[in-house]
Design a protein around this nucleic acid. Sequence first.
DNA 1: AGGCTTGTGTCCTCAACGAG
DNA 2: CTCGTTGAGGACACAAGCCT
Length: 320
Amino acid sequence: MNYIVFDLEWNQSPHGKSRENPRLPFEIIEIGAVKLDHERNIVDTWQKVIRPTVYKTLNYRTREIVHIDKKELDAGTYFPDAVREFLTWAGHDSIFCTWGTVDLPELQRNMKFYNILKLLKGPMHYYDVQKLFAVQYEDMNSRKSLEYGIDYLKLEKQEAFHRALVDAKYTAQIFQTIDLDVMLAYDSIDVYQNPKSKTEEIHMVYNGYTKYISREFHDKEAAMRDPEVLGSYCCICGKKARKRMHWFSVNARNYYCVAECKDHGLLKGKIRMKHADSGKVYIEKTIKISSQPEVESIRAKREELRARRRKKRRETAAQS
DNA sequence: AGGCTTGTGTCCTCAACGAG
DNA sequence: CTCGTTGAGGACACAAGCCT
């Protein structure tokens, strides 16, 4: 088993949104990758410039960021050939690692455009090094730039950022500093190819929380009627926990609840609605260990929401 | 410039319910 | 019965911050 730390550079329509191809808003122009063995020693690298077929000139903003000239692009590899070679080089039992959450979806969107998405089965586990960096060095929820991470760790900046192999190397260097237990406790799941059937649904148990990714439902209401979606199970023992506060929403996408496990105490649940490509919806549910003060603040949040609506109504009623 | 995510806030509609 | 109030929540806009 190897780790494949990769990075992409991409381009977009040079003439604005009105003249973009809606199936491919971003076109990959370079793939760079570093292979690490199971002890995270660097053992190989791989890099290819991709010859664009959709946007043949660079968007002015892309030109400012990515230092690739037209000659290099014109001499590049046709995307499907490059991806086939990349995946073969990566090997089937490897785990991908990227800085942030966007590279894997972008890779798959480009693959879908060229009708070769079947070469990469999803959903898949991967390591988001940007997230691991936040867990180990920051406040857990921050998302910093790659350069911030390199500066923070005082690693040498020999090569300029924003070439795929360079950024992949920097990401790999940061990845090497992440404690094994942090890494194992915080893997990520890419759901560009979200679960379609009950058997494809994902149930993950982490240190202190669980994650569930559902199959597709016709709409939000159908999802919020499903017993599996609504259930709150203890993230330690897996037993059904008793609801202390029913699912309530702050907006159209997020639902919260509080439950209590007989043996392991207070739990907080969060449901996030996601839109699948097909127009249907699926949900991501996390259940975490909570505490009395946190439950109080959730309750306060709900009360505040109600109070604000009440106040608003009073004001509008007073005006008319 | 554009995509994506997360959090906030506003406005509107719907249904339940009690008062008159 | 109608009306007003209330909770609930959908639709949408906006602002950060990442990514290129």
